[in-house]
Each structure stands twice: as structure tokens, then as C-alpha cells.
Design a binder for these strands. Sequence first.
DNA 1: GTGAAAGCGCTAACAT
DNA 2: ATGTTAGCGCTTTCAC
Lengths: 336, 336
Amino acid sequence: MAKITDVARRAGVSPSTVSYALSGKRPISDATRRRVEEAARDLGYHPHAAARAGAGARASVLALAAPLRSGVHVPVVMRLAVSVVTTARAHAHDVLLLTQEEAEEGLNRAVRTASVDGLLLTDVELHDPRLPTLRSLDRPTVLIGVPANAYGLTCVDLDFRAAGEACVNHLAELGHRTVALVGSPPEVYLRRTAYAHHLMHGFTTAAARHGLASSVHPGGPDPATAPRLAERLLHEHPALTAVVVHNEPLLAPLIAAFEHLGLRVPADLSVTAVCPDDLAATPRLPVTSVSLPADELGARAVDLLIRKLHGTAVPETTLLPPRLTERASTSRRMPA
Amino acid sequence: MAKITDVARRAGVSPSTVSYALSGKRPISDATRRRVEEAARDLGYHPHAAARAGAGARASVLALAAPLRSGVHVPVVMRLAVSVVTTARAHAHDVLLLTQEEAEEGLNRAVRTASVDGLLLTDVELHDPRLPTLRSLDRPTVLIGVPANAYGLTCVDLDFRAAGEACVNHLAELGHRTVALVGSPPEVYLRRTAYAHHLMHGFTTAAARHGLASSVHPGGPDPATAPRLAERLLHEHPALTAVVVHNEPLLAPLIAAFEHLGLRVPADLSVTAVCPDDLAATPRLPVTSVSLPADELGARAVDLLIRKLHGTAVPETTLLPPRLTERASTSRRMPA
DNA sequence: GTGAAAGCGCTAACAT
DNA sequence: ATGTTAGCGCTTTCAC
């Protein structure tokens, strides 16, 4: 493994010149720079990040803390992760993946021991226990999710409150008077996971504003529970004509279950979802949905974090406006 | 951030004593160790990995190179990733996630620049272009997947060849005479991805050995293509009574498509899958399957890598024997 | 425009 | 059993 002194010797300059020539942190004559670059290339030289970090520079590593708790839809997290890694690479950073439950201590360790420059947190809770640790860590951080008190934090997320409202607005415009939300699994609400909470909040307040009868039903993550849930919904709310589904694994099975019970979608029942676009745009029954732009969220989060690393001021909370796409699963309420 | 000298001062000892007391690399009196540990705890001291690495020690970081190319089933990779991170943490290591396509150069960079101690590769191809780079990198590596020439490498995977054979054996015993394999998407075969190749190989040879008529059909990753594929299979192979599915996203839709075409599973058509257990053990129609133990693969791979880091000799290739579980989707062939 | 030298925080000989 | 010292490879004052 070539080191900086090897490059220096080969280029006939001092190590510091190599460092400067490669980093561009001070003016170097064109001739020298050229020789240094060539020598570096010949030797396949890559500066050793650890040593660099020792000398006070950054290690160019971001940590992604993605707890993967029960009830979260893994594919969405994965897409976020991929988008984070890709965007980080575009900024010449690598990504350390933290999934552990040992949340607080894990963050500490990552920052010290693995010399992480900045942190990205997912699965943010309204009162996230990691926040105090985070504040003490004095490393730039971006939360993917908006806690109850975002003061002094940088957060980015889909505007889930507005997303919930958008779904209800759409249904209200179509004349529906009784709506239900099929949300995330109960444990997600119990943890007060931010996104689930915000969506529910938006759903409920919009329903109230429109004077709609509304109810909220956490849905199990298991598709097999869909038929029971469908039955229960219809039984408990006979006037129900529209459902908002914020639960990826349940979306398709739930629609199937309703149809199995003899309801036609959208003729008898309108369905709106909040989920990644490709999940909604299925050929059998394209579902009207608010897009959950996991890729964009990841990219935005990294962009913000990189800017913070550079010392640039960034907005406190970035909320992506919901984008509702009308597809075949919603229609005007048929007068009964 | 407390450093080793802070701890030393507080404990009234020299820095090296702190280092030794914490690492246990040389005998320290109980009294001293206790004082050091207490001082470290009080100060919230974590050794700085970058500096450590500078001094010749390891950084305790593993890299997981998971390309996520087109055609791979993301949830399986994700489970592997989670299992890798969890197991790595159990060995006090962190995991750097590499997804980039810039494969060879990416590995180089990770090792140098991010001071990675060891590498884990997924999505291994029969003639994987990363192998030469890997050999030159001189970092312990474990492949999750078995290339054509595994000489000098450490590999771990499900024994996909045996898995293919197990499926065919099972079907042959049930009296089936014409079988088809619905495999991974075409691009996976074009890349000569190891697992897909090995499974197909096992399927084909076992079919030949039993004297069965067999055919292989790459399946698109898109569930929407299932109906077309089902039709084609039945049309091209009128005598077909059994199918092996090695394609997670297609499994359920394909069965649905067959049933839609009027076939009863398993009365008219037996279906075997190679997939994670929870995907097969669906309540509607539990599918006979060979388990794809993503968790165990990840854990094994990390264990092997850690042992290599410790300088322990490890077996060259570890193949997990296939475990076939009979469920409701296969039955004895009905004489026509 | 370039070099020499100090030092980042840690570990591992080399002492005692 | 503990302390002293010399680096690891790099960046960054200083100095010219």
C-alpha cells in the first residue's frame, strides 16, 4: 500500500507538497501538481483515512442508524438505505450501517470508535430517547422523521400530516362521508413513531374539518390478517365508503379481502394509500396514493448532512409536500 | 471527547497502562485495572479507532459489498445485511455498507480510505470480476456465494445445487414426470450469478438422473408477468405437473395465476419453492419449500470473517445443506 | 511555491 | 507490574 512518502519520493517533492497538491489547499505550480498526480496514479495511492482523521481531518464516513424495529416495512427502509449510500458516495463519503437496539450507546460508540463524521437517524419517535445523546455528541445530525420538539435539530421527511389531509380531502371531495384509516401496526403507535403519528393526526383533523365520520385502525403487519380486518371494518362501520391505507404489506391483501367480501373497488369502496409509488401503480388495480418518496428522502437527508459538515446553515425542518396521484381505486361516492 | 491521556491522568497511571488495562494485552494489577476502568467510565472514554488504526491496530470495521443489481430480491439482501450487522456487533465490529456498482475501485477505496479490516461480498458471480481485486487487496474476505473457482477463497452459501436436487427428488418421488423451473430474472443468469446457476444446475441434473422431462424459465421480477408466464408454461408443456419456483416476488402471483387458469394446487399442479421460510409458510396455501436461511448465512459469513481476522484457519467453502419442508403445495401426481 | 517539523490519539516495543 | 518512547500516515503550522 503506497503511502504519501512513496508518492513524495517518486515525484521528487516533500510529503506536505503531495498533501497540498492532492487536496488543493494551497497553490501548487502546475508542473509539480502534474508530477504528483502522476506519481499517485502510478502507485495507486489513496490517502489513508484513519491517519488523516488522526491529523484532525474527517474520516468521510456517515452513520445511518436504522433500528429496524418491529412493525416497520423493511423494503422502504432498504430503499432509504440504498439512496443514502448512493448519495453519500456521490459526496465521497461511506456509510456505516447501525441497526442495533442499543441505540444511545451505539451512537456514542460509532462516533468515537468508528470516527463517524455525521449521523442520520431513521425511525424517529415523537419523544425519541436518542435525542439527548445526540445533542451531547456534537456531531452534525439529520433526522429522517420529525419529533415533537424539533428545536435545534435538522429534520427531513414527507409531510405526513399533510399527506393524511390530502387523502381525506380527496375522499371528501368525492363525496365520501365515512372514512377509516388503516395504519401501521400497534407497536409503531405505541412507540409514538413520528411518521405514523403525524399521518394519523392529519387524517383525523381533516376528517373533522370536513365533518366526516372517521376511525383509526392499526393494522397487523401480517397480510394474513387482512380478511379479518376487512370484515371488522365493514361490521363496525356499516356506512364506510372509503379507506386510507398507511401500511404497505396490508394494501394489496386488504383490497383483495374487500373484494372477496363482495365489495367492488372503487364502486362500493374507495381506497387511498400512502406508500411508494411502485407499490401503488400495480397493474391489477392501480391505487390512488400519496407517494412515499424513500429515494428522495434519503438523498435529501444526505445532502443536508453534507452541508452541515461543511458548516453551511441548513433549514431546521424540511417537509416534502405530499403528491397525490389519482388512480383507479377511488371514485365519487355512489348515493345508496 | 476524553482521550487516553485524560483517563491516565485521572487514574494516576501512564497512557500505556490505560491501553493495556483496557485491552487486557498484558497483566495489570487488579487495583490499577479497577481505577482505570472507573476513570474511563467516568469520562465516557471510548478509544478512538482512527488513532488506533494509525498505531497498527484494527479499526473494527467490516465492509459489506452488496451490489443490489437488477433482478435480486431486495428483502433477502436486507435480511442478510441485518444479520451481518447484528452478528458483527456481537463481535464488536461495525459494518460499512457498499452498494455501488463501481465494484472493483469501490473495494479498493473502502479498504484504504475507510480502513476496513475485512470484506463480505454478496451477489457473487461464477466469474466474479471482483476476485482479482480481492486477491490483491490482502484483506480477509468472505464471499456469500460460490464462484466457479473458489480456490484460496472463503465462501459460504446455501448449497443451491443440492437445493435444486432436493426439490426435484421430492417431486420425482411423488411421481411427477414433467417439471419446470421458474428461475431468477434473465439478467441474473446473464451475469452468471452463482446461486442462480448452481440451483439451475442441481435442478437440471437431478431431473436427468430421474429421467424427468424438464425445462427452465427465467421469470421476470414483476408479479404482473405471472399470468403470461403461467399460460406459456402450460401451453409449451402440456404434460407439466410440477413447478419449482426460485423467484420470490413471483411465487404467490404465479400460484394465483395457475389457479386462475383453472388448475388446483396441488391436485393438478405441485409447486415447490426455494425462498425464505416465512414467504413459503403463508396461511392461504403453505408452499413446500427449501428454506433460504438469509439470517444464518449472514451470521456464518461474519463468524468466518472474524475468525480469519484472528488468524484462525477456516474451511474454504461452507455449504449449508438444504432443508426441504413439505407443506400443502405438493402432492402425489394424479394419474391422468 | 515548497520544505521541515510538530503533533493527532493510540499501541507496542523497550525499558525498569 | 508499570512507565518511557518511538512511531503509524497524514495534515498543518511555521519558516524560507
